[in-house]
Design a protein around this nucleic acid. Structure first.
Lengths: 247, 247
DNA sequence: ACCAATGTTTCGTAGCGTGAAACGGAAAGA
DNA sequence: TCTTTCCGTTTCACGCTACGAAACATTGGT
């Protein structure tokens, strides 16, 4: 049960503190200590260390903490010249212009999916999709794609994981995933967020393995089930072209 | 020579390991341990911790370490809706289209400057400017802007800092900065990188304090001293308009 | 086969991180 | 003005925990 990997507690705690800031707004010391469940003085020292390296800074006015520019520096190193997300942005823009909706690119990262690239719809009412967002793998069209086309062993691992919602029976869900493999795309209608719908198709690399899920999302009154059925071929086609672009 | 702030050694080391990856390429355990000057087993545990939280991952093929998507998640929180860099991108694009060169936005972060936004030139030969890059405050046109228009106390602090190159006399440099304040803009010609030139102007916030340096950079055979002199008014004007846009 | 280089595990020690408590300071309320 | 309250900061003794040497494992090169 318990073969925890050998990790360093203080570092783990520091990273937890950092992750608090994914919420977005600035945080005070006490608020952080409550959120991570650590003593004030412990968090104080952790924050002092993070600040010393520039990972967090203090807002001069409010005295609260926020992320520092060091994380921008790190993320710049993530986006390298060979970043697939950069290669695919052109094709994504073309699809956006064709369909008028927001286009996202998701990859699986452990037990979540992460939006690694996005081009926003130009319409007044649109889905806004910030790059970097981390979302659950249990709901949404792209989640189903990432699961349905994953290698069987990771699929089993994820569906049997304790973090998998008990309300979703693995057996029934697998049947649904098989249908998606058959169809070649997946849809979701007001599944994760009310008023939103999405349709997603898989992008395979040259090695034949799933690389990412291409997803079109918008308001559910525009992306009706019928409308999604209609634009599915375009999305599947774009995903196929993208697969040819990446290594 | 005294009291360092109270920080946590293990965390500090972990952050140093993370910062190794700003180089860009993937790193092996031994290489990291040499770079940060720590024992292999120590780095091994630090990396295991960073990996456990998703800040680094291992390339399946090469077994080397690289940054994980958690840093993308963090950087997304840095780019919020009220991010000034997002407000200014429109004006930057306009300036790019007018001058045909790459436009960058720099802010001072401690003893460095960081490029927080950029729009790339469309020309075949152009300056490429990745967002997030951290550069020294001692060379380059935008460095001079960030120093010249900084509050006097931080200017003194930076010029007297041990990290300031001894070859640049603070006295003479201050005189140069005064001239820049007079002119309202700064230039650099093959100063930091051979073959590159830049011209930069300050952006002030509503509070009258310096917010960032707007910079135009390109190959030195296009951005000749004469050409820079010619386009200076356009850049100063754009910087002024940008100042009105931010809070 | 050897050697060299890298990644992983073990283990005893002491140095370090920990959390309770006390301190200081600012803002809110009576 | 004097409380009260809430934050942030500092101190300190205890005992856990992170440390590094060394051994072990694994690979690839010659």
């Amino acid at each position: 049960m318990e073969e925890e990997k050998q990790t360093i507690r203080a570092v783990e705690r520091a990273l937890d503190v950092l992750l608090c800031f994914t919420a977005g707004n600035d945080l005070g010391l006490t608020e952080i200590s409550q959120r991570v469940g650590l003593h004030k003085s412990t968090v104080f020292r952790l924050l002092a260390t993070l600040e010393h390296r520039g990972f967090v800074i203090r807002d001069e006015a409010t005295e609260k903490y926020r992320l520092g520019l060091r994380v921008l520096e790190l993320s710049a190193s993530l986006r390298r010249e060979d970043d697939p997300a950069l290669l695919l942005i052109g094709e994504m823009e073309r699809l956006r212009d064709q369909l008028g909706e927001t286009i996202s690119l998701y990859v699986r990262d452990r037990k979540d999916r992460v939006r690694i690239q996005a081009v926003q719809s130009q319409q007044a009412i649109r889905r806004v999709a910030p790059v970097g967002a981390r979302l659950p793998l249990s709901v949404g069209a792209s989640s189903k794609i990432l699961l349905a086309f994953a290698e069987p062993e990771v699929q089993d691992l994820l569906l049997s994981d304790p973090s998998w919602p008990a309300s979703l029976s693995p057996e029934a869900y697998k049947e649904q995933l098989r249908e998606i493999v058959q169809a070649g795309y997946a849809t979701s209608f007001e599944e994760r967020e009310p008023g939103a719908a999405a349709i997603s198709a898989p992008i395979f690399g040259r090695n034949g393995k799933l690389f990412a899920a291409l997803s079109v999302s918008g308001p559910s009154n525009r992306l009706t089930p019928d409308a999604m059925l209609e634009c599915a071929p375009a999305i599947v086609g774009a995903a196929k072209r993208m697969g040819a672009l990446i290594g």
